[in-house]
Design a binder for these strands. Sequence first.
DNA 1: AATCCCTACAACCGCGGGTAC
DNA 2: GGTACCCGCGGTTGTAGGGAT
Length: 293
Amino acid sequence: MGRPPCCDKMGVKKGPWTPEEDIMLVSYVQQHGPGNWRAVPSNTGLRRCSKSCRLRWTNYLRPGIKRGCFTNDEEKMIIQLQALLGNKWAAIASYLPERTDNDIKNYWNTHLKKKLKKLQEGPDSGSSKHGFSIQNSIPRGQWERRLQTDMNKAKQALQEALCLEKPRPDNNKPIIQASAYASSTENIARLLKEWTENSTKPAAQMASTASSFFSGCFDLYEEFESLLGFESLGSSNSDFSQSPEDASVLQGESKSDLVGADHAPLLSRMPENWLFEDQGKEDLALASFSFEF
DNA sequence: AATCCCTACAACCGCGGGTAC
DNA sequence: GGTACCCGCGGTTGTAGGGAT
């Protein structure tokens, strides 16, 4: 009855991932693609549960991830989307293809929530240097109009961010995957570089070798892309994720059901309808903050 | 210099939906 | 149809690093 157990729960390693483990995982995904995580620990020899492998790939090793400082635009978009969608981090992340849901969630919890709370509690809570203001300090009619203006601006910003007007080939999925793995080699190579620089262990030599290997892979994929007439990753490792649909591909299957269920209809409603179509969400939206883009 | 506290973020946990057997 | 599992998601925790005392 049912499926066999996914993995042996005994002897499963927890805690931070080592560079060696990252290499094993990345090379496996390069060969087999993301998905079928159940098979990953047994096929790679990693003493990690499938869930941990998936998480590591999705949140850290996956190509096209931008790490570090959030821009003002990203920040504004997150706050606006959070007001509209609530804590649907995966949905929010689909509009910021270079950011993971975990990253956005962390940023919200550690920075934005605090910032907004401060603004609400502060004596001069009506406005701030960050460019957002709190609705209840403005007469209703005025801030409703302002909200509408802000929503239009938000929609415009979203459209720009998503580059919906940019055409792309219908059958580009395998190409994107190829690019994705190439970009993944950048991630792991960067990781290894940092590790090598900070390590005096003999293993650093192995890391260096592995880095060269991934660098070689990267060159191969660059060549592959140029043959097919696609923009080289050298110019931008994020340009291949121009739409949330692409982002879903980038993120493996992780966003597939989002695209298949909630997200695709949402996109089909862009640009004019989705922000306002659900009257039930109006109160939520009105309770949000407005911005000066 | 030692200790405490705070922050940031990677990773884990638990749950629900979907699905293979 | 029932069971066990996979997968994705959101909430939470653990911990390293930096600043304050």
